[in-house]
């Protein structure tokens, strides 16, 4: 092989090596690389995007992230014809090919610093606070969630996301699978919320809860 051909081959190989992202064998480092797929919608910082209706996920507990990713994969969430955003998440969740990878990517996201999102809706905080008494039974008075009840923290969620999810629960678009007990419970409870205005009130109050 001539020197010129050797150099061309070496350059080609180094270019290819530069293009490929190395996937670490395990651990949070592997989760970070896997997260690159998620960052397309949820953002590099995990703060979500109003534009593509992707919620903030940074700092959510690992148990909740794992559960939701698995729910999307097995069709317990995001498999309803009217769940436009869920149907987007469903195939994306399936790009994570093993339970071990679900765990490491959840661990990576859980380790990202959470941030309080800005208000985008108008609601009556006082009315929301009164209505939140029902929610506090599972999500806590401080909105920080309760793993034993499988209730996620709400304090970092965007207000538009809370309203949208409450609407989905109420309409049976989320929580439709009876085997998914926590979501099915949430579906039943959300039936007690009168309308979207009441959901906005709740979201407005949750916005006031500190991280």
């Amino acid at each position: 092989m001539t020197a010129a051909r050797s150099m061309t081959l070496a350059l080609s190989l180094s270019t290819l090596a530069g293009c490929a992202t190395e996937l670490p064998a395990a651990g949070v480092a592997r989760g970070e690389v896997l997260y690159q797929n998620c960052s397309q919608c949820h953002g590099d910082d995990g703060y979500g995007s109003t534009l593509v209706h992707a919620p903030a996920i940074a700092g959510l507990p690992k148990w909740y992230l794992e559960a939701q990713l698995t729910n999307f994969q097995i069709g317990w969430r995001g498999a309803h014809a009217d769940d436009v955003e869920g149907l987007k998440m469903r195939p994306m969740s399936r790009t994570i090919k093993s339970a071990a990878d679900v765990m490491v990517v959840s661990e990576y996201v859980a380790g990202m610093p959470a941030k309080k999102s800005e208000s985008t809706l108008h609601g009556d905080v006082a009315k929301g606070q009164a209505a939140y008494a029902v929610c506090s039974a599972c999500h806590g008075v401080d909105g920080k969630g309760n793993e034993a009840m499988k209730a996620p923290p709400l304090t970092q969620a965007q207000d538009w996301y809370i309203v949208k999810q409450l609407g989905k629960f109420k309409g049976g678009v989320r929580g439709y699978e009876p085997k998914n007990a926590a979501a099915a419970t949430m579906k039943d409870i959300s039936g007690g919320i009168a309308d979207e205005a009441a959901m906005r009130d709740l979201a407005a109050y949750i916005q006031t809860l500190p991280l």
Partner: peptide, 11 residues
């Protein structure tokens, strides 16, 4: 048949 990002819904 309804298409959306990234799913097909069949009625």
């Amino acid at each position: 048949i309804t298409a959306q990002q990234w799913a097909w819904t069949f009625q």
